[in-house]
Design a protein around this nucleic acid. Sequence first.
RNA 1: GGUUUCGUAGUUCAAUGGAUAGAACAAGUGUUUCCUAAACACUAGAUCUGGGUUCGAUUCCCAGCGAGACCA
Length: 597
Amino acid sequence: MNLESTIGSLVAQVIDSLYGLKLDASQIQLQKTKREFEGELTVVIFPFVKAARKSPEQTGQEIGEFLLKHNPIVSGFNVIKGFLNLSISQSYWLETLKEIHSTVDYGKTTAKEDAETMMIEYSSPNTNKPLHLGHIRNNLLGYSISEIQKANGWKVVKTNIVNDRGIHICKSMLAWKLFGNAETPESTGMKGDHLVGKYYVVFDKAYKAEIAELMGKGATEEEAKKTAPLILEAQKMLLAWENDDKEVRQLWEMMNAWVYAGFDVTYKQLGVDFDKIYYESETYLDGKEKVEEGLANGVLYRREDGSVWADLTADGLDEKLLLRSDGTSVYMTQDIGTAKLRYDDYNIKKMVYVVGNEQDYHFKVLSIVLDKLGFEWGKDLVHFSYGMVELPEGKMKSREGTVVDADDLMTEMIDTARETSQELGKLDNCTPEEIERIARMVGLGSLKYFMLKVDPRKSMTFNPKESIDFNGNTGPFIQYTHARIKSVLRKAKDQGIDFSTISDINLTISEKESYLVQLLTEFPSIIKLAGEEFSPALVANYIYDLVKEYNQFYHDFSILKEENLQLKQFRLVLSESVAAIIKTGMGLLGIEVPERM
RNA sequence: GGUUUCGUAGUUCAAUGGAUAGAACAAGUGUUUCCUAAACACUAGAUCUGGGUUCGAUUCCCAGCGAGACCA
C-alpha cells in the first residue's frame, strides 16, 4: 500500500468518526506539500469544514492530532489556512527506498499471460516522399505510447499501415518514367525514398507549367487542373494499376521497394519498429467488400450517380462518402478494410490510431461507420490525436520548400552532439565507435526529448534555425546526470563499497534526500497516468523534475567522501535508484542513456 | 459560414479547482585545489478581454477578440 492510500483511508476514518462525514479514501484531496512549507504530504481541509462546523484551521488541527497519535508514519504536522501539512518519518522513507532499490523494473507492470491486447497504429506514411518532421512526432509518440502501455501490463502490437497505392505514387512513377533517365538509388547514391520524392516534385513542377500554359490559352484554373495532360496520364496509370497492368505494376513495385529500403533506414535511425505492417494495396479491396455488405444490409445507401454514402445525420454529423461513383475507394474505405483484417489477425481489445488532429473528424466518422457495419469494437477505438508541428512562420509547406526532412534533421542533431562532445573534451579516451555511439544517443536523445516533453494534444513550434538545446530541460541534461551517477557508482565499486542495500534504517537524512525518495515513490503512478492519458510528456516532465532535484543533491552533498559509512551507503543506493528510474523512464520515451558522456 | 482545438515571461514549454502561477532558453552575475561545470546558485520578467459558478478559477460555464484545423 502506498503512502497516499494509507494516509487517505486514515483521514477518511478520522472525518467519519469526528464529523460523521463518510467519504471514500479516493475522495480525500492529497497533494505533495509545496516546497516553502514544512512537511511532505498535504491534506486539503476545505471540503470538510462544512461538516466539521469549525474553522479550517481548527479542523486541520484536530485531524492532524489524530493522525499523529494513530500512525507512526506521521511524525509531525502543521496547519496553514486550510492545508494540513504532514511530516513523514525518516525511517518510512528509508524503508521505502530499500524496497524500491530491490525491485526489478520498478514502476513497470509486466504483462501477464492472459493480458489483453492493444494494437497501436502509427507512422502510416505515403510512399511518394520521405518522412519529415511531422512524421517524427508521430513515430516518437507511437513508439513511446506503446512502451508506456506495455509498462502498464498490456500486450502491445505495434502496427503500420503503408499507403502504397493511389494517385500520389502514380505521379512519382509517371515523372520518373518521363524524365527519370532510368535513375536508380544505386546510380545516384540517393536514398530510395528521397529519389522517389524528387520525382514527385518533378511531377508537380511540370504539372504546374502545363496548368499555366492552359490558363494562358484562356482556360480557367479549375479546367486547367482537370485537363492538363500529365494529370490525365497519371489517372490513366492509376486505372491501369487497378486493372493489374503488368508494366505499371512492375514499375510500382520497383519504386515502392526503393522507398521501403529508405524508410527502413529512417526507422532504424529513429529507433522505432513495428510488429506487423499492413499495406493499403492489400486491404482496400476488403474495405470495398465490407461497404458492399453494408449496402446490402441497408446500413449504407447508393446515390443515383452510383456513389455509396453513410448517413450520419442522426449522430449529429453529415453524410459521408465511402465509394466514389466510379467505384474507387476513399481513405475511409481503406480504414474499414484494414480494421477488418487486423481483427481477424489478432484478438484485439483496444485499437489505437496515432494520427494528427487534422483527422479528428475522420476518426469520429470511422468510429460510427465501423459500429454501423457491425464491428462491436468500432465505438471504442481510440484516436490518439496529436497536434501539428509548426515552424515559426506556420505550417510546413512542401511547395515552399519549408519541409524539414527527417533524415537531415537526425544527422544534424548527431553531428552537433559529436562536436559538442569534442569541444568539451569529454570523450578523449574513447574509441571512435564509442564516440559515435554516444553522439548518436545524445543527438537523438535531444531530438526525441524535445518532441516528447510537450503535451501531445497541443501543437508545437520547432525552429530549425535555432538548433535544439543540450542544456536545461533537455534530453542530454538527463543523460548527463545518468552518466554522472554511473561514474560515481563505478568508483564506489572500485573502492569495494557495498551498496547492495541499506543496513541502517535509523539514519538521519536531510530534507533533500527524503524529498528525492518521495519523488521516486511517484514513478509508478506517473506511468499509470501516462498510459491512461496517452501522454509521454508526463513521463518526460517527471524525469526532468527528478533529475533537477538530484543534481542539486549531487552538488550540495558528497557521496564518496562522506565519512559516515552508513550514510555513504544510503546515498549510493539512492543514486543507483535514481539512475535506474532515469533509465526506465527514458526507455519509455525511446531514449537511450549512456554510461558516460 | 458551420464544427472543433488552442491563447501563460522576449522565446519554447509546465501547473487532478487549491497556498506566493513552475522550468528552460535568451539577458546579467557568481561557483572548479572537492564524486563529470552538458552542472549548481543568484537577479529581472507572464495567465488575451469582459462577465458568471465557487470558500478558492490559468483550469469549469457564457460572450467577445485572436490563431490553427476540419467540413463545405
